[in-house]
């Protein structure tokens, strides 16, 4: 059992939890993730490690409530525990002194790029961050990102804050204005990472994305998370989660992510009925 010691709502349906997991906190590196199972009947699902404190023995996770598993996690309060938590999984980000790096976070993906941006800054890079969301009220970690960035740009799809449009548009604009990037990190919804990859491809800028396919065990056993990268099948859980954006077959990834849409909808309906006081079976 892994106890929740802090819980915050960052935006509607976007929550932060800090969980007691001293062994994971000691080993965590930027870019890695954990797999959780909230309760006995729960799914195993991955979440990126956002922050960790070896000293306090805690890890911090940020998630958006989109399905049964994340809603279940969001229902837990300080003092409650998740049943299973395993990590740190995946390969850490390759943090190096690249020069000027654009770090791009879309939606809840901002939480995933935050530790990478922090590490890149500490490694002596000039960090230009672009964070975006559908709307101003869904924007997360603005202050945290500002603190570790040399410059921070914001975009919202509806223009309620910052530039109106997508983070990839902002990147394109910056390059047009003469910004020169030695590397780009982008984490967010798959379509957003795809759009960023399209922009950087034309300028031939090294671009890293962190993929989030469906995953079960997280140790290379099941192959659920397989993706095609550079024509080869890779497992995101052990070979990733970060890959060269220009090599990823995003179309295939998007299709595989939608494999259980129907079931996910069915489970959600049933769960919501249950929450509103219906039959628990």
């Amino acid at each position: 059992m892994f106890k929740i010691v802090e819980k915050k709502e960052l935006a509607p349906k976007i929550k932060l939890v800090r969980i007691l997991a001293p062994e994971i906190a000691k080993k965590a590196r930027p870019g890695q993730f954990v797999i959780l199972r909230v309760d006995e009947k729960g799914e195993r699902f991955p979440l990126t490690l956002v922050d960790w404190s070896p000293h306090e023995g805690t890890i911090c996770l940020i998630f958006q409530e989109i399905g049964v598993s994340t809603i279940k996690l969001g229902l837990l309060n300080v003092g409650d525990s998740v049943l299973d938590l395993v990590g740190p999984l995946g390969r850490p980000s390759e943090i190096d002194r690249y020069g000027t790096v654009a770090v791009i976070g879309g939606g809840v993906g901002t939480a995933s790029v935050y530790p990478i941006a922090k590490a890149l800054k500490e490694a002596g890079n000039r960090v230009i961050s672009i964070i975006g969301a559908r709307s101003a009220n869904l924007l997360i970690l603005e202050d945290e990102m500002r603190q570790i960035s040399d410059e921070l740009f914001i975009s919202t799809d509806d223009g309620t804050k910052g530039y109106k449009g997508f983070v990839s548009d902002v990147l394109n604009m910056l390059i047009g204005k003469g910004y020169s990037f030695d590397a780009v990190w982008a984490v967010g919804p798959t379509v957003m990472m795809m759009a960023v990859a399209r922009v950087t491809k034309s300028y031939n800028i090294k671009t890293i994305v962190s993929l989030n396919p469906i995953m079960i065990d997280g140790t290379g056993m099941c192959g659920t998370c397989r993706v095609t990268v550079g024509g080869e099948t890779k497992f995101v859980c052990v070979d990733g989660p970060e890959f060269d954006a220009h090599q990823v077959d995003f179309d295939e990834l998007i299709k595989r992510q939608r494999m259980y849409l129907e079931e996910e909808r069915k489970a959600l309906e049933k769960f919501e009925k249950q929450l509103s006081g219906g039959n628990s079976n």
């Binding site: 009947k41 729960g42 799914e43 195993r44 049964v68 598993s69 079960i216 065990d217 056993m221 099941c222 259980y260 079931e263 996910e264 069915k266 489970a267 049933k270 079976n281």
Partner: peptide, 18 residues
Amino acid sequence: LIRINLMKGYMFPKWDTP
């Protein structure tokens, strides 16, 4: 087999893994 045996997918949606 992991979906079925470990995650009890055959009991979906009583169990969460489909």
